[in-house]
């Protein structure tokens, strides 16, 4: 009999290695955080011309949609990716691996992130009529983080309710 099946037989969740999907979310969130910090530095005037191999980042970043009131959109990206990074790193700790909070936060966070990214992508495509490669990269990272969070549905079903 293996260690895992023994533990399972005693009603204790089996002890496994760190969840790979949470590692993936943490990695993607870190990349997203770096992209957002770069865009935030640009929005606040701390960098020069934005590096933009593809598209017209200047047009997108100078549009009124780059700010929500006094807050640059990239600041929301920084906050969102930072939260995802913290939650996914917490979810790697053995004590949190079977918590319901982590799957809920990861799924909720990435769904919200994908929704917001979809809205920004819509603005680029149909309102601003220009693409910013960093926004597209961020959107792709968020979709990947969402896909990496999908196994959390299984964790959610198996995790004991409080």
């Amino acid at each position: 009999m293996t260690e895992a099946s023994l533990a399972g037989g005693l009603g204790v969740p089996p002890v496994q290695g760190p969840p790979g999907n949470r590692m993936a979310v943490a990695f993607l969130a870190l990349l997203g955080l770096l992209v957002s910090v770069y865009m935030l530095a640009y929005a606040l005037g701390f960098t020069g011309d934005v590096m933009c191999g593809v598209g017209d980042c200047e047009k997108v970043q100078s549009s009124p949609y780059a700010w929500i009131g006094p807050v640059p959109v990239s600041a929301l990206g920084v906050a969102g990716y930072l939260a995802l990074l913290v939650v996914s790193l917490l979810g790697l700790q053995p004590s949190m691996q079977h918590s319901r909070t982590v799957p809920l936060a990861l799924l909720g966070g990435t769904v919200a992130g994908v929704g917001f990214s979809a809205y920004l992508t819509y603005l680029e495509a149909f309102v601003i009529h220009a693409w910013c490669q960093w926004c597209v990269i961020s959107a792709i990272l968020m979709v990947l983080a969402f896909l990496a969070s999908l196994p959390e549905l299984r964790s959610l079903r198996s995790a004991p309710r409080a």
Binding site: L34, V37, Y38, F46, T47, G48, D49, M51
Partner: peptide, 13 residues
Amino acid sequence: AVGYSVGTGAFRG
């Protein structure tokens, strides 16, 4: 990379 961009690339244009 971001630090380098902030330090050297500021207002290049």
